[in-house]
Design a protein around this nucleic acid. Structure first.
Length: 287
DNA sequence: CTAATTCCTGAATC
DNA sequence: AGATTCAGGAATT
């Protein structure tokens, strides 16, 4: 599929900060190279570059990019709904225009399974390796790259194969999760129509997917914006600025739940957006 | 319910 | 330069 170079002209009330959006760690296949963001979404190798309200697009058409970046979401309204205290307010100033992407569900699920107990760069390497080993070759502007494989392409993957992709002990979790998903033909369809709490619970039954990964998948692939993932940084930020009383508590599922319900209660329907803004401003909020 | 331990990679530090 | 330390979720006991 050939697509022409395109330029999207953003409206004044259509804020976007592409750097914050693609660089905040929500998706793992974007890299910045000489002024462009290069990434793969589905089977398309895409390049994006923003200059003010001009958004240049290569490798995909405008409607695809608009949807992926969720430009149809009224971000100004979302931001004013979460702008409830000086701390988020500072975060909003820091990464104003950050948008939550609409990621492909399967890739998002496997990516966050790879994301436990590691930093963002390590996850990027793992996801990239899985694509290189098992994904379909696709042509990009310069050379070639690989789409993230679909479920059937990973259905016969072995533990060793995934260990070669540096998943480590997560390889065994991944193969178990793959086999339970494969066992139910419409698993993805069923998941995608469940309400948040049920989708979350269903995800957590999978091997290698705990509360935090489940919340990320709900937020980044299922458009469930009330999801409030609590990673170490969000935990730190909430302890420091909102709930110092929770500081001394150790980690446990019950304590995770306290942070999560704080987020949902304090920020409301778009708590997930608040989470991303806090996370995006983490080095300013927890220096 | 809580606490402790193990799993593994990669970067930083000694 | 090679060893040690640490950051980072989930599962198991």
């Amino acid at each position: 599929m050939k697509t022409m170079p395109e330029t999207i002209l953003l409206e004044v009330d259509e804020p976007l900060d592409l750097d914050a959006t693609l660089g905040c760690g929500q998706a793992f296949r974007w890299v910045r190279r000489d002024g462009w963001w290069e990434g793969v979404v589905g089977r398309q190798a895409i390049r994006l570059r923003q200059d003010g309200r001009r958004l240049e697009v290569r490798g995909a058409d405008e409607s695809f990019v608009r949807h992926y970046l969720s430009l149809d979401l009224d971000l100004e309204a979302v931001i004013s709904s979460i702008d409830r205290d000086p701390v988020v307010h500072a975060a909003i100033e820091e990464v104003y225009g950050l948008r939550i992407l609409r990621q492909p569900l399967f890739e998002c699920l496997i990516s966050y399974l790879c994301a436990t107990n590691t930093n963002i760069q390590a996850v990027q390497r793992r996801v990239e390796a899985i694509a290189r080993h098992y994904g379909e070759r696709i042509e990009s502007d310069g050379g070639q790259s690989h789409a993230f494989p679909d479920l059937s392409s990973l259905s016969h993957v072995t533990d060793e194969g995934l260990r070669a992709c540096r998943l480590g002990y997560r390889a065994a979790f991944a193969t178990r999760t793959l086999s339970t998903i494969i066992a139910e033909p419409d698993w993805f369809l069923r998941l995608s129509i469940l309400p948040h709490d049920e989708a979350r619970g269903e995800l957590m039954t999978l091997s290698g997917i705990g509360p935090k990964a489940a919340d990320c998948i709900c937020l980044f692939a299922l458009e469930q914006y009330e999801a409030f993932p609590v990673d170490v940084w969000v935990r730190r930020i909430v302890c420091r600025h909102y709930l110092p009383a929770l500081e001394t508590r150790s980690d446990s599922p019950a304590h995770y739940e306290e942070f999560r319900s704080f987020g949902k209660g304090h920020f409301g329907r778009f708590a997930g957006y608040a989470q991303e803004y806090l996370f995006g401003a983490r080095h300013r909020l927890c220096p």
